[in-house]
Design a protein around this nucleic acid. Structure first.
Lengths: 200, 200
DNA sequence: TGCTTATTTGACCATCTGGTCAAAGACACG
DNA sequence: CGTGTCTTTGACCAGATGGTCAAATAAGCA
């Protein structure tokens, strides 16, 4: 049914998503205005509302697209692989996402900070289930002596916080590091952290 | 000069700060309204503006008060103490702050997420200097073989992100942990992390 | 080319928001 | 109790904000 989408529609919808990401990730939903988004998209406000029915719809669409990719790196953690390397690889994937998609990370952070009003159910449902599944795998790895004992859920929290920090607190990180590129040095550091934590 | 402050003034100013913290930490500066703050403080809007000249003034006062305490735990890290224990103690102080003052942590996170417009100079000045000073101490500890080699600045970032995560992403953490208290288990986990990272 | 559909816009609206102000109430204190 | 100061408030304002609408313009296509 909703198949067709003219060239113009595709271009403008994409422009709006990009603009919305830029604005919402910085100011959060309530702190952003349609004029800002329209401006960033290079459209007039009524024109913007021709493509999306409301401010809320843009924001929700952004969140939905984000969630699609957000859980993917954790999904990819392979329970048949080498435990330490699998966990390291997951952390590296997340760090890469922080480098390449910092605005997505900040959009997510903003939503959570504000109490996650529109994604609480995803957190308590899909995300929680995924974490529990992976926690089981990690527990098995521990039981098999493949990695040192560690709280599996907090390990996952640690991966999230350590990697997302470089996107969410980018301004602070750069204020302190000066000209050094954060991500080059962060990668080495995080690999150290997780290797020493996990290698039996 | 600005000595006097009637009983009523003290009470209301305190109420406004508390209310402002509650509101601003959730919605950020632009996402919050004076009505929300006035409501939370149990005052009318004009009455609120009798005590503070503007929305900005409330927010700025909150940030100023926050920054006073924010750097303190790092300051306390004693270069004459036992290296591993000093760093662990610092992490524990930060974790305690996340537990006892989550709104302060979220206020800070919100400000940074939005690009830190009003505290960029503090970050690049006072904070950066403090971090560099402590990094020097950590480097000495490494040179003396008291702790394993580690990037000192990223170590400090790690302490920040791992501890603040439990305040800033509280909703997510609780959605996943269910009824378990996050902080009890987090403390053990973080001590594991830093001990394995640092103990020679 | 002409006609249909898709796109864009200027003008407009109700509501919200930060902030003002004069007048009314409450306090303190001699 | 009276009076000068501090506190509170209702009414109000200008500008911003999310959203609407009819009319104008641009594409697409036969």
């Amino acid at each position: 049914m909703p198949k067709s989408a003219t060239r113009i529609q595709q271009k403008n919808q994409a422009a709006i998503m990009t603009a919305g990401l830029e604005v919402f990730s910085q100011f959060g939903f309530r702190g952003s205005t349609l004029d800002q988004v329209a401006d960033a998209a290079g459209l007039s406000k009524p024109n913007l509302l021709y493509y999306f029915p409301s401010k809320d719809a843009i924001y929700t669409a952004l969140l939905a697209r984000l969630l699609e990719n957000w859980l993917e790196p954790l999904h990819q953690m392979d329970d048949a692989g080498d435990p330490v390397e699998e966990i390291l690889a997951y952390a590296n994937r997340k760090l890469t996402m922080s480098r390449d998609f910092p605005r997505e990370s900040r959009l997510f952070a903003n939503e959570i900070l504000q109490g996650a009003p529109r994604i609480k159910d995803v957190l308590a449902g899909e995300l929680r289930a995924l974490v529990e599944a992976k926690a089981t795998v990690i527990k098995r790895w521990i039981a098999e002596g493949k990695i040192k004992p560690v709280d599996p859920v907090h390990l996952i929290f640690s991966i999230w916080s350590l990697t997302q920090h470089y996107a969410d607190f980018d301004v602070q990180v750069r204020a302190i590091l000066g000209d050094t590129d954060p991500f080059d040095t962060a990668e080495t550091h995080l690999n150290d952290v997780f290797r020493r934590l996990l290698t039996p």
